[in-house]
Amino acid sequence: MPYDEKSISDFEATLKSHARQLVESLEQGRFGEAVEMIHRLNQARDYGLYVEVGKLTRELHNAIVKLDLDARYKHGEPSQMADANDRLSYVVEMTEKAANRTMDLVEECMPLADYVSQEAQSLATDWKRFMQREMNADQFRDLTRRIDQFLSRSLDSGEQLSGHLRGILLAQDFQDLTGQVIKRVTQLITEVEVNLLQLVVMAGKVDRFAGIQHDHEQMRTERQMSDKKVPSRGEGPQIHADKRDDVVTGQDDVDDLLSSLGF
């Protein structure tokens, strides 16, 4: 890297030697020379700063290009960020489709299962009457007709039910596809994090050349203030509920909390 430690140590070495000469001139009363040294110190600082800021600007530009943060499409190719956006939209779409497909099939299964259990219940009652010889010939003929009908409809329902269950099974294939997509997006985020970290390191070097001091205490306070989110905004699902004290871990916790409030 061009803005390496060497240029900084060169710069610092120049500062030191000029400073030493400055002190020497002052102690020996050579004020003209001292002023000249102060001028050279300034020059060294300015020069170092210009050169390094120039280098850093180039590096910064490269790093930003590498980050590929531009959300637009370039030359018909999506940038990494636009691509990640597309991929996540695809995940939302796939999971929604799978959920709807599953619910469609479940809704179709329900009346079939209801028919089988209700009709079986009703037939069982009548069958019991027949076994206890509480049925006349006409009623028995009616019962056999109903059993016949039940058997043929159950056969159809059974086939439909297994077909739908297979459909529900297949609708879960989204997990494989969305899993792959999410893994790639996670990878991208890791890369972006590494590149951002490099930017932070570069910014640190600029600070060192320019002699800028940051008020870390104030920055921390500001961050804490902005972290305190308005509760009505909503945070969505908690991923690490078991590791946080301010979050409930389940319905039992909610019930306990509400009952402690007099609910």
Binding site: P231, V254, L257, L258
Partner: peptide, 22 residues
């Protein structure tokens, strides 16, 4: 709701919710 912060549940209770399911 998926909102599971204690503060939020308390906020909902104070706003007059009748039940809270996470």
């Amino acid at each position: 709701t998926a909102e599971a912060k204690r503060d939020q549940i308390i906020e909902a209770a104070q706003a007059g919710v009748n039940g809270y399911v996470v």
